[in-house]
Design a protein around this nucleic acid. Structure first.
Lengths: 233, 233
DNA sequence: GTGACGAATAAGTCTGACTTTTTGGCTCCG
DNA sequence: CGGAGCCAAAAAGTCAGACTTATTCGTCAC
């Protein structure tokens, strides 16, 4: 399911990327292209391409006579979807999930407010459909079906905001929601209050009530923060 | 001043990247690696490395027997600092600046609230110093000096929030502030009310008053939105 | 019209030789 | 004893050419 599945260099990245983002090499560690090529049994050309990609993500820096230096996490392009996936698959998944949830709590309310102003009729219809789908699947342990509608709902909100930076966070939110359903404590049916909030957000967007859409979405994200025990008194 | 200055493939990217992000090639356009290598007078190895980097930014997709296809803007990794720089240097700079300012308006207030809870003594001191610097340079057409302190102020806020996703937006905010000073209508001294707000935010953070820090920062970002004629009634 | 086969095409891969830059040590001189 | 400058090693960087593989398109038979 990884994006870099095609090509030899992609397969190298699939193991080297997670190793680095998991902290397998302390910042400042030096790798040598030739050794890596030997280790993965690929030619230097392929290895160089892989290193270039890691370099563009600011995971490593390549310098002559020194080698490929692993950079500290503060330098990483943490908004790169590939880096996000690698980190979510690694050991500090909880930490990553918390960071992203805080980001959600900042972005989504504003996005919902903008959506109330800018959403097209089609987007309003899609939003209502998602909300109804959430209601329909909110009981009877249909968590997977619920997740589909929930993810679609938030994706429509972000897209309908009309802001491309928000729209591109759709995948991130999808990862967070999937992570919550699959790995966190979520064996029971979703909170009925949360479901109601989603329906009300769809209403507010449809009616063009930006302030209400923003406030209701804020309540949703506050709930998400509380689920992860992130204080917000 | 570009990050990819070193290396031949970096020089290729410095011209090919901006060309693509400026919309020089319609989505779906097909480039051939060999032709590009000829055009830039580099070997195919170097050209392939450059294409790999563009591919990791989701600007292009490379497929066998077809070539290097330019992807539509909706696919681009718009959070990649390199992509942001390329787009800010291009024709749709105003559009980009507006998108980023909306993002700021969502993120910075929340970050300020978190900073009020998490900032260290050193960060509080740095914040106060920045605010005082802004006051000192807010009169007498010292726009460049003011920009330095303003940029530092917002960077400290984002870092002090303790959230790595927020912290990594420091460079983006710096670009937006610099763009406002250098290319927008900003010949006069900064708005005294905005300067005061920054001082008050520093106070609120120092006192640990999260709600007040958030609200004051929201006022700052509302001002930034109004400067770009982005409605927020 | 549809399906299968085959040829053309462009990316993908590998190899080996060569270049360039940087660093670390070594010498030589003050 | 210390510092400036030089030299050699090391690793990334670059290049050229040959070969492989997957994909697409055209053609031909059914």
């Amino acid at each position: 399911m990884s994006t870099s599945g095609r090509g030899l260099h992609g397969r190298v990245l699939d193991t080297l990327g997670p190793e680095i983002t998991a902290g397998g090499y302390p910042p400042g560690s030096v790798l040598r292209t030739d050794e890596l090529a030997q280790r993965f049994d690929v030619s230097r050309s392929v290895m160089r391409e892989a290193v270039r990609v890691l370099e563009s993500m600011h995971l490593v820096a390549s310098r002559r006579r020194v080698g490929v230096t692993v950079l500290p996490p503060a330098e990483w392009n943490v908004y790169d979807p590939q880096v996000i996936r690698w980190r979510l698959a690694g050991a500090d998944r909880p930490r990553q999930l918390r960071s992203l949830t805080v980001l959600r709590s900042a972005v989504e309310p504003v996005a919902a407010g903008l959506a109330a102003r800018n959403a097209t009729a089609e987007q309003c219809a899609a939003l209502t459909e998602c909300a109804l789908g959430m209601v329909a699947t909110s009981r009877g342990h249909r968590l997977e079906d619920y997740l589909v509608h929930d993810t679609a709902f938030h994706r429509v909100i972000l897209t309908a905001s009309g802001n491309e930076m928000f729209a591109r966070l759709g995948d991130v939110v999808a990862e967070v929601l999937a992570g919550r359903t699959h790995h966190e404590v979520m064996f029971e049916d979703p909170d009925p209050a949360a479901v109601t909030l989603h329906v009300q957000v769809a209403e507010a967007v449809r009616e063009g009530d930006a302030a209400r859409a923003e406030e209701l979405t804020r309540e949703i994200t506050v709930g998400a923060l509380q689920e992860l025990d992130i204080l917000a008194p």
